[in-house]
């Protein structure tokens, strides 16, 4: 892992609209290293758009975005090496096996000595015995795990997850639990969106609500977190903030 500089995510005055639909505006956000930020928000609030901007896939209209210490506009390729993305779709090819998919992505990232690394990440998401199976033959939960394996393959520093809980069974949730705990313990960061209040609050160091084009941190002034306030207070505040947005 490279030395971690600045903040994991640093967003200033971000603005994005699609045609005449404003999605995000005057959005400021910073995520320190070693933390998981969980974003809640109604459908259409812009959660996915924000994540896709951080993932360098959608280009912002205005504002500055830095991920893992690299400016997104100036060094998109540097950002791409330092992020892992888990989206709604697996980004895997149905007609390739898990292993072939991961070997393909290792080569795209130019990883040296990728064979052991592929086995390692497949073990990590407990798909070691499915390595030779075509992705299309796997269950939804397993495909999601394969997508997670793909996202962490190149040892990124920032993990971006868009509603990772969808399609996950109990076993997969436990695997993700473990992975996230290990992830932040080693000083790396996660930004995720979710609709699941319980899971989200258990995973997140901080909880934000996306509403009116901006990220709000309910229940706290600027530095929210379950550790300081206790779970119950944050849950109430998040629920209230979500209700207010409707």
């Amino acid at each position: 892992m490279t030395t971690l500089i600045g903040e994991a995510v640093q967003v200033r005055q971000l603005e994005k609209s699609f045609g005449e639909w404003p999605v995000l505006w005057d959005l400021d956000l910073s995520v320190p290293w070693g933390q998981t930020l969980v974003l809640f928000g109604a459908n259409g609030a812009g959660k996915t758009t924000l994540l896709r901007i951080l993932a360098t896939h959608v280009r912002p209209d205005h504002g500055s975005v830095a991920v893992a210490g690299h400016n997104l506009r100036a060094r998109p390729d540097a950002v791409r090496r330092r992020i892992g993305v888990v989206g709604h779709r697996s980004l895997l090819y149905d007609d390739l096996t898990c292993q072939e998919n991961l070997v393909y992505y290792s080569r795209l990232f130019g990883l040296k000595d990728h064979k052991p690394r592929v086995d390692e990440v497949l073990e990590k998401v407990k798909l070691g015995d499915r390595a030779g199976h075509l992705v299309r033959t796997l269950s939804n939960g397993m495909q999601k795990r394969a997508a997670i394996a793909r996202a962490i393959l190149h040892q990124p520093d920032v993990l971006l997850m868009d509603e990772p809980e969808t399609g996950l069974d109990r076993e997969s949730v436990a695997i993700l639990d473990e992975l996230l705990a290990e992830w932040t313990a080693s000083g790396r960061s996660v930004v995720m969106t979710t609709h699941d209040l319980d899971l989200g609050l258990s995973w997140g160091h901080r909880a934000g609500v996306l509403r009116g084009g901006k990220v709000h941190f309910p229940g706290t002034d600027s530095h929210g977190g379950k550790d300081e306030n206790g779970d119950g207070a944050i849950r109430q505040a998040v629920t209230a903030a979500l209700e207010a947005g409707r």
Partner: peptide, 13 residues
């Protein structure tokens, strides 16, 4: 016209 709708949407939300 689009800009008017745009401004309305921003302030409405």
């Amino acid at each position: 016209l689009g800009r008017i709708r745009f401004t309305l949407r921003r302030s409405g939300r």
